[in-house]
Amino acid sequence: MTLRRRILILTCAVVLLAAVGVLAVVRASSRADEKDRPQAGGPQITRGGLTLTPGEGGRRIVFRNMAWGPHRDELASVPADAPEGPRTASGVSCLRFHSAAGTGVCLQADKGGVQDGYKAVVLDARLKEVASHPLAGIPTRARVSPGGHLAAWTVFVGGDSYAGTNFSTRTSLLDLRTGKYDASLEDFTIRKDGKTYRNADVNFWGVTFAADEKTFYATLATGGQTYLVRGDLTGRTVTTLRENLECPSLSPDGTRLVFKKRVPGLSADAPWRLHVLDLASMRETPLAEERSVDDQVVWTDDHTVVYSLPGDFGADLYSVPADGSGAPARLMASALAPAFLG
């Protein structure tokens, strides 16, 4: 190969790399512009004051706004009786969120350190930070106790989906009354079939708290099975109650759990159906939603539950009666991780 030909090939390669670089910059800029562009036909969103208390207007929903535009991923609020109405955005961004009794927990990206990561931030009623803990993985679940004294969150530390078996989670608990922080539920004593149980493959996720501010329910996975467990913060124990329950959520009256259940014969990518468990009788009731729901459902009251399903801009919220009757209905477009206040 002649010197001239080598120089020509090198020149062409340099020009090609430069073109690729310019195209990448243009595409990145376009994506940034799209995020700042309001969603066509989407909800009206304005910046304003937002608190984690009901306020004079009655019940409200606070949630992660998924509508495309400058307020995407921010906590936003609407009146509970007008869920598709104009939204008030807070300026606080969360990937997962929950709130009760004036306390909020916000799992968010943390870009302030040497390396990007995630953190759990506890918020007061005015969205001011009162505590913060680094996260060991990708945020997936968050809950605050009914009295606002306890917070829990779950992250993926290996894998990124509950649908398969190749994943690992870490679930943490924080007592805001004492500041006690349990980095992993795996440090609790497990009682299974009346005996102390240990296994290296143990995973926990999806905590939900009872009104006594010491009892909780969660999912335990081990040996290829999932279990509903009841936890005791005082005794630092969890006890298995039933198989094949994931992401439980306790009703406001404390009598029932809504959860997702793997149903044989369904696709491995969409294996769940929503059920409600009566804790007194241990009787399960399938709900009218026939689509696979991968979410920790929330209760609007003792009669209705709300959950997310994939939508055009990430997720939409749906509601369905908790007694197995009726039919699912879309509650809000472009929304995720709701908390009903008041």
Rank of each mutant, 00 (worst) to 15 (best):
Y197N: 06
L277C: 12
L245N: 02
T208N: 08
F167A: 12
Q225F: 07
G254I: 00
W272H: 15
F204R: 03
K180L: 12
E289Q: 15
A270R: 10
P271M: 05
S184V: 14
V238F: 02
D175M: 10
A221Y: 03
K195H: 07
R283E: 13
A221L: 03
A270L: 10
N166Y: 09
M282R: 11
K261P: 12
T215M: 04
L174Q: 03
Q225H: 10
R230Y: 04
D278W: 09
V276L: 02
A200H: 08
S267R: 14
G223W: 02
L220W: 00
F216P: 10
T234P: 01
G224M: 03
T234L: 01
T255Y: 05
K180Q: 15
S249V: 01
S281M: 13
A200Q: 06
T219G: 06
E284C: 05
C247S: 15
A200T: 13
R198G: 08
A270N: 12
G224I: 01
C247Q: 11
L176Q: 05
R170Q: 15
L266P: 05
M282K: 10
L220N: 03
D182I: 00
F204I: 10
S249F: 00
D269E: 14
D193G: 07
D193Q: 10
T208C: 06
G224T: 11
T219H: 01
T196E: 10
S184H: 12
K261N: 06
A280C: 08
K260I: 13
L257Q: 07
Y217V: 09
E246I: 02
D182N: 09
T226A: 04
A218I: 06
P286E: 10
E243G: 12
V276Q: 13
I190E: 06
R170N: 11
K214A: 05
R262H: 08
